[in-house]
């Protein structure tokens, strides 16, 4: 990467970084503002996670250069996401299985 990109190209990247920065700051304020609306927990959860995912994707795509990364990195990341989802599913299903979905006071 270091030798291939020219200075003009990097300058273009810098402009994108600034746009991403502004978007991240804006989305942070939006998340906090929505939290103060005290929406029902399901909606609050969905909105918070959607915004966090958008923010995370922005950081990963532009700051971590995932928009233009090699196939090998993508394949490792897809595998990681599969394992992460499996981990969440196992944990949540374990709750419904072992605890029978009962709440602890």
């Amino acid at each position: 990467m270091a030798g291939s990109a020219n200075i003009e190209e990097v300058k273009k990247h810098v402009r994108i970084y600034m746009i991403v920065f502004a978007s991240l700051a804006f989305l942070t304020i939006v998340t906090v503002a929505i939290a103060y609306l005290h929406l029902p927990i399901t909606w609050a959860l969905i909105i918070a996670l959607v915004i966090a995912t958008i923010k995370g994707t922005l950081v990963a795509s532009f700051f971590m250069h995932l928009v233009s990364e090699k196939k090998v990195i993508y394949s490792f990341l897809i595998l990681t996401v599969v394992f992460l989802i499996a981990l969440f599913i196992l944990t949540i299903s374990a709750f419904h299985d072992q605890a029978g979905g009962k709440l602890v006071p």
């Binding site: 998340t31 906090v32 939290a35 959860l45 918070a48 966090a52 995370g56 950081v59 990963a60 700051f63």
Partner: peptide, 14 residues
Amino acid sequence: DIVWIFLFPTIYLL
């Protein structure tokens, strides 16, 4: 940074 982006709303705001 990404970890914090998920930590902040899930722990502080929900």
